[in-house]
Design a protein around this nucleic acid. Structure first.
Lengths: 247, 247
DNA sequence: GTGTCACATTGACGCAAATCAAGCGGGCTT
DNA sequence: AAGCCCGCTTGATTTGCGTCAATGTGACAC
C-alpha cells in the first residue's frame, strides 16, 4: 500500500469495507489499489464516504438486463457471471467478475447485460448518482476509469478472436490461461486455476456446448497438460498450454 | 448544428478540417457533433488548433498492431477495417470504422489492433500527446470520451453474442442490420446498405468463411429478403430481417 | 484484342462440434 | 437409507459449416 499518500489515515473501509486487514483484502491488492494510487487523500475520503458494504447469496441477481442498476459495485469476494440472453433462451456470457472487478462503471441509463452471483459475493457499493457527481469533481478518477474501460474493450476484442477464429480446444485453453492470469493477481496462484463456474457457463462464454467443454478438458487431462481437481484445474504442461493459447 | 453554443463563430475546420461546408461534412453530422455539443467555445477552439487534415490511399495502414500510433484520428470519409491476427494467419476483424468514428481514443501505449483503409480515407488527425493534455484540461471532453468507450464496450459484447451464439444466417443478417443503422446516421440511407468491405472481410468479422457469407447472401436474395447490388445490398423484407437479427 | 488478378459464386465432400442419449456420483431433502 | 436433482462425463449419431475445387466476371495492363 505504499502508493497511498497517507495510508495510516485510511480505515480499511476505504474502497474496502469488508473488515479485513488491508493486506488480506484481495480487492485492495488488485484494481482498487491502482485506482487509489491515482487519487489523493481528499479523493479517497470522498470515496470512503460513498462506500457501503453489501453481500449477495449464490444465484442472487446483481443486475437485470435493460434495467438501470442503482449502484456501482466493486467485488470484494466471490465471483459473478455477466451475460446476455437471446429471446429464444440462448445465452452468451460476456465475462466473469472476480474480486477487485468493478460493475456498472459505464454510467449509462441501462445496463448492457445481466449479472448474477456464482457463489456468495461480497461487494462494495457506491450509489450511482453520487459516484457520478464525484467523477465530475475528480478528473483523476475519471481518467483512471477511462483507462479501465479501454482495457475492458481490448479484452472484449481478444474474446472476439477466441469466439470467431479459434477451435474448441484452443478456446478452452485460452479461457484457462486468461483466468489463471487473473487469479494469479488476486491470490497469487500460478498453476491452480479455480473454476467457480459450471461447464455450462464456460461453454456459454466460449460459444461451445457443455459436452464439448467437458471433452476438451478430459482430452487435455489425458494428454497430461492438466489435471481436473474438485474446484477447478491444475495446470501441468504450461509450455504446451501457452503454445495452444497463442496459436 | 443547433447544439453548438455559438456555431457562427466556428469555422468548418473545427473538428472538421476538410474544407467541406459544415452541412456536407458527415463527420460533424455524426459523432463529432455530439462531442461538440458537450464542449464550449474555448474547448472547441483548443481542438481546432490541434486538428490536421490527412488522407490515406485504399489499403494504406493506419495503425500497426502493437505499435503505438502517434495520433488520434477522426474519420471524415471512407472506411477502415480494424483487426487482430493470430500467428498462423487467422484473422478476426473487430470492427469497421466509418465516417464520424474515432480511432486511437484508448490513449494507451500500445494499439490493441491493426487498422487499414478499405477505400481512400480522409481523416482528422490530433497528435496524441496534445490530445491527452487537452483531456486533462477539459473534463467535459473526457467525460464524453468515457461514455463513448462504454458504448463501444457494449457493442463489443453484442458482437460476442453474434460470434458465440448465432447461426451463419443470423450472423449475416445481424451484420447487415447493424451496418444499416450506422450508415443511416451518416448518409440517411435506410434500405440501401453499402458494403465497402469484401466477403472475406465480412467472414472474418463474423467468424465465417467467404463461401458461407456468399451462400447466406444468395439465400436471402433468393428468398426476396434483399437484393445484391454492385456496391452492397438493398434490403427488401425488413420485418423478416429484423426478426432474424433479433432471434 | 488477350492475359492477369482479385473477388464472388456455386457444387461436392468432409469434418468438428452439436445433438441425442445414457450413466455416474455427490449433495440435497425426506 | 432412499430418492431426487444437478452437474459432469462419455458414446453414438447428425449436421452446419468449412474445405476443396471449378467457374464466372469485371477491372486493369499491355
Amino acid at each position: 500500500m505504499a502508493a497511498l499518500r497517507d495510508p495510516g489515515a485510511l480505515t480499511p473501509l476505504t474502497l474496502c469495507p469488508n473488515g479485513h486487514a488491508i493486506d488480506e483484502c484481495s480487492h485492495c491488492k488488485v484494481r482498487a489499489l491502482s485506482v487509489c494510487s491515482a487519487l489523493d487523500g481528499d479523493e479517497l475520503e470522498a470515496l470512503d464516504r460513498l462506500a457501503r458494504h453489501v453481500a449477495f447469496d449464490a444465484r442472487a441477481t446483481l443486475f437485470e438486463q435493460d434495467e438501470a442498476s442503482e449502484a456501482v459495485f466493486n467485488i470484494t469476494g466471490g465471483s459473478v457471471r455477466l451475460y446476455k440472453l437471446l429471446p429464444d433462451g440462448r445465452r452468451q456470457i460476456v465475462g466473469f467478475a472476480l474480486p477487485g472487478d468493478f460493475l456498472g462503471l459505464s454510467m449509462s441509463d441501462r445496463n448492457a447485460f445481466s449479472a448474477d452471483a456464482l457463489s456468495a459475493v461480497s461487494a462494495c457499493q457506491f450509489p450511482r448518482q453520487l459516484f457520478s457527481d464525484l467523477l465530475d469533481e475528480k478528473p483523476h478518477l475519471l481518467r483512471r476509469l477511462h483507462t479501465m474501460a479501454s482495457h475492458e474493450l481490448s479484452l472484449a476484442q481478444d474474446q472476439m478472436v477466441i469466439l470467431g477464429r479459434r477451435t474448441a480446444e484452443e478456446k478452452v485453453v485460452a479461457f484457462l490461461m486468461g483466468l489463471r492470469k487473473r487469479w494469479s493477481r488476486i491470490d497469487g496462484s500460478t498453476v491452480h486455476v479455480p473454476l467457480p463456474m459450471t461447464r455450462q457457463d464456460i461453454g456459454d462464454f466460449l460459444g461451445l456446448t457443455v459436452e464439448t467443454v467437458s471433452r476438451m478438458l478430459t482430452k487435455l487431462a489425458r494428454e497430461k497438460a492438466l489435471v481436473i481437481v474438485p474446484d477447478g484445474v491444475r495446470l501441468l504442461d504450461l509450455p504446451r498450454l501457452e503454445a495452444l493459447a497463442e496459436c
